[in-house]
Nucleic acid binder design. Structure first.
Length: 440
RNA sequence: GCCCAGGUGGUAUAGCCAGGUUAGCAUCGCCGGCUGUCGCCCGGCGGACCCGGGUUCAAAUCCCGGCCUGGGCGCCA
């Protein structure tokens, strides 16, 4: 429990970010972490940081008791302190205001010489930052990414609820690794073998026959050997699936969701965006759409030698990203390079009713109209070299009345990278898991 | 999985190519000084060559292997 004395003081707590010139003369209690100490001898400046921001505390050593002076001399970076003092308008201070301290207590001592300096005076490598992630996260710039991410999640949920989607949670532990595509993590499930889910794809399709419109925001796992700035082993997928819909319907949902998030961020996260140096603009909808064939043509004019039917390589996408500098769709990929559950175009089965949402060269989302006919699904499984028997739990749902449906999956962290202009996906995950990183 | 680059005090780096220096600088920690700092400043002190093998009179430096890290590709979100 908290000491009654401290509990009482917490009632009068004023957040660091609320220490402004307008409350000049007010007596306040501030609780937070020592961000920085500048000791001038008889004058000691301490920058205190809490979740709201930072404020400067000044200790006039001559005017304080010896007992208080002792505590001030012992302050170490990142210790948790409780400062009692008076707010004073102070033009000499950069913030225009400071807290003249009357007393200070150390509530949680930090060790001297931290493994990593949260003030950022000395650059740290990504590896060091992630090894001491909690200290790294205390940096305002780093923290802001997650404050923004938090608002993105809420904005997406609000958007989906408003449009009548039901939020679902599908299993993350699955029995078979047969969906194809990504490598899965194998786990021990009592005496059985199991896998960590790579996506909610099959479950969300099934659930459209119950809720019609579903969405899920959850963690998924890929055991890929990827070693790039845009891959992690555990990521968050924003997935939707809706009945009585085709790709055009869900592309509209996606671009409106993206635009909505921009509007919410401009409204709620102006401070964070500014501190990150991000100048966000709401993208115009509908987003530009180019077909696979058109993208191919553009790349060929650039001198790329790509055969029809090939997927675009990363260098190809980088080239394309120079022409399309914001969000855009690439649609109607060859059926051959899309999963079994994607619907073929009726008039040309070599093409599929599929799309990717791109931001410049980065693939953010992928979706399409799904196969809804039982026999077509079986045929496509076989064509992909998969055994329909392994999919019986899924396939049988297609015998119970399956409407035409469509959906997409959006990589949340990649989206957050775009929104916060981070160039490494690890910047957008609190505790990232990649090929070589399992801790902290 | 393949390819490239890199591991020097707690952190970030110089030195390495052309082998021999008390291994330099900054930050950090400790001590001292400073009443207006805000990347405070000034003085002092402390702390490092990833591991193993080889070449050599001599290896942080050259060679081989390992481990670790960053990035690119493939694949994907």
């Amino acid at each position: 429990m908290i000491e009654p004395r401290i509990k009482e003081a917490l009632k009068g707590r004023v957040m660091a970010g609320e220490i402004v010139p307008e409350i000049d003369g007010k007596s306040v209690n501030v609780f937070g972490w020592v961000h920085e100490v500048r000791d001038l001898g008889k004058l000691v400046f301490v920058v205190v940081r809490d979740v709201s921001g930072m404020c400067q505390v000044v200790f006039r050593m001559d005017e304080l008791d010896e007992s208080v002076r002792d505590v001030v001399r012992k302050l170490s970076s990142e210790s948790v302190i409780f400062v009692k003092g008076t707010v004073v308008k102070q033009p000499k201070s950069r913030l225009g205001v400071e807290l003249v301290a009357e007393s200070v207590e150390i509530l949680g001592k930090s060790v001297p010489r931290l493994e990593y300096d949260p003030t950022g005076k000395v650059q740290a490598s990504m590896d060091v930052r992630l090894k001491h992630r909690i200290l790294d996260l205390r940096r305002p710039e780093v923290k802001n990414v997650f404050i923004i991410g938090n608002h993105v999640l809420k904005a997406l949920r609000d958007f989906f609820y408003q449009r009548g989607f039901v939020e679902v949670r599908t299993p993350k532990i699955i029995a078979s690794a047969t969906e194809g595509g990504a490598e899965l993590f194998e786990i021990k499930y009592f005496d059985k073998q199991a896998f960590l889910a790579q996506s909610p794809q099959l479950y969300k399709e099934q659930l459209t026959t119950v809720f019609e419109k579903v969405f899920e925001i959850g963690p998924f796992f890929r055991a890929e050997e990827s070693h790039t700035r845009r891959h992690i082993s555990e990521f968050t997928s924003v997935d939707i699936e809706q009945a009585f819909s085709d790709m055009d319907d869900v592309m509209e949902v996606l671009e409106e969701a993206v635009a909505h998030v921009h509007r919410v961020l401009l409204d709620k996260c102006g401070k964070q965006l500014k501190e990150l140096g991000v100048n966000l603009r709401v993208p115009k909808t509908p987003f530009p759409r180019i077909t696979y064939d058109q993208a191919l043509e553009i790349l060929r004019q650039e001198g790329e030698n790509i055969k029809w039917g090939e997927d675009f390589s990363t260098p190809h996408l980088r080239k394309l990203g120079k022409k399309f500098t914001s969000y855009y769709y690439i649609t109607h990929f060859p059926t051959e390079i899309k999963p079994f559950y994607i619907q073929e175009k009726a008039e040309n089965p070599a093409l599929s009713e599929s799309f990717d949402l791109m931001f410049q060269w980065l693939e953010l989302a992928s979706g399409g109209t799904r196969v809804s006919d039982h026999d077509v699904l079986i045929r496509k499984l076989v064509q992909k070299g998969l055994d329909p028997k392994m999919f019986e739990d899924h396939v049988k749902v297609f015998r119970y009345g399956m409407p035409v449906h469509a959906g997409w999956g959006l990589g949340f962290e990649r989206f957050l990278m775009v929104l916060t202009r981070r160039t490494n996906i690890r910047e957008t995950v609190l505790f990232p898991r990649d090929r070589f990183r399992l801790t902290p």
